[in-house]
């Protein structure tokens, strides 16, 4: 048993480092054993065998796999992920350009998810078996049932039919002549530049993809919140509060909600991997041009350096999300600070 909260966080960090190492080895080996020679692919079919073997030596493809891996990771830690065959630029530069768009989309989706799912979960638990409970169940069911691409396309169809000028692709109106700013987050950059028109346009563009991305999570989180609320409602200390005559409103919002937000947060962390996966689909449907679109292209074109980087960054997204979840939970629940790191 570890009593020290910092030690617990450290253990957790250690696990994450281990996860990244295993993930990187897996994808690295996978990317190197595939049929096809990266040097040949980089030079094209017209290159002579001498040119290819020269490039192989230059790229270090002659060295044993472990040596290649170590040198790759050494360079990766210094921010060098190699060149992308597709864009002919360093992969890091491509990532710097595309990751913020995805971060913006995913953050917006997570905010929508919690803003809808937590209140819905609380209400469905409180008004158990009344109409609102059935609505909540229906939303959860649709959320886990509908393919995200179908939901995204349906949103586009509805927008095109009933809201004629609502933008259904891209991140902003290019007619506004806004080129972006320091953070890469369109909403933040436009405010920093004091361009309210750009901000509104960006917000409009963000709405549909963010809703589409949040749908699957809304269903699950509503469900988890509901069952956590119902379970905690039966706990002794809550019954004690009730018998002391504490109003139901206070019980729900001051005591139950806090206790019941741990389960949905944990699930959110675990489900983050599939959220990133869904971003690939949503970005494609809405031509979002983020990291996921970049990744999809890289995979389709067998751009090995980019594919490796995309998988690593996806893993990193997952890990960062779970770290944030861990910190949030230890703030919400003091008991967690004393428990052994899970």
């Amino acid at each position: 048993m570890q009593q020290n909260p910092f030690l617990a966080i450290l253990t957790r960090l250690g696990t994450f480092v281990l996860v990244m190492i295993v993930l990187s080895i897996m994808i690295f080996v996978l990317a190197r054993v595939v049929p096809g020679d990266p040097a040949r692919m980089a030079l094209g079919p017209t290159a002579t065998p001498e040119q290819v073997s020269a490039l192989r030596t230059e790229m270090g493809l002659d060295l044993p796999l472990p040596v290649q891996y170590l040198s790759y990771m050494g360079r990766a830690l210094h921010g060098d992920l190699g060149m992308s065959l597709l864009s002919q630029r360093p992969v890091t530069a491509d990532l710097a350009q595309t990751v913020p768009a995805t971060v913006e989309l995913v953050l917006a989706a997570v905010i929508i998810m919690f803003a809808i799912a937590i209140p819905l979960g609380v209400m469905t638990a409180h008004f158990r078996d009344l109409w609102i409970d059935h609505v909540g169940r229906l939303v959860s069911l649709v959320g886990v049932t509908i393919p995200s691409f179908l939901f995204a396309i349906s949103l586009q169809l509805i927008a095109a039919r009933y809201f004629g000028d609502w933008p259904i692709i891209g991140r902003m109106d290019h007619g506004l002549g806004f080129t972006g700013g320091p953070t890469g987050l369109m909403l933040v950059d436009s405010l920093l530049a004091g361009r309210l028109d750009v901000f509104l346009s960006a917000l409009q563009h963000l709405a549909l993809p963010a809703i589409a991305l949040s749908m699957a999570g809304i269903g699950q989180i509503t469900r988890i919140t509901r069952s956590a609320m119902l379970e905690n409602r039966r706990k002794d200390h809550v019954l004690t509060l009730q018998s002391f005559g504490v109003p139901e409103r206070v019980i729900i919002f001051r005591y139950l909600l806090k206790l019941s937000s741990i389960a949905p947060l944990t699930i959110m962390g675990l489900e983050f991997a599939s959220l990133i996966g869904n971003a690939f689909v949503i970005e494609m449907v809405f031509s979002w041009g983020g990291f996921a679109s970049y990744g999809l292209n890289a995979i389709l074109q067998k751009d090995l350096n980019a594919v490796t980087a995309v998988v690593l960054v996806s893993g990193l997204f997952f890990i960062v999300a779970n770290l944030i979840v861990d910190i949030l939970i230890s703030i919400i629940d003091p008991r967690m600070r004393r428990k052994e790191a899970r």
């Binding site: 996860v19 690939f280 997952f318």
Partner: peptide, 23 residues
């Protein structure tokens, strides 16, 4: 459990895309 935790950290769709296309 360690192996399971590592596998769970991989975005399934991304891995499936990468694996199936690299093969």
């Amino acid at each position: 459990t360690g192996l399971t935790n590592v596998m769970l950290a991989m975005p399934p769709l991304v891995m499936a895309l990468a694996v199936s296309n690299l093969l």
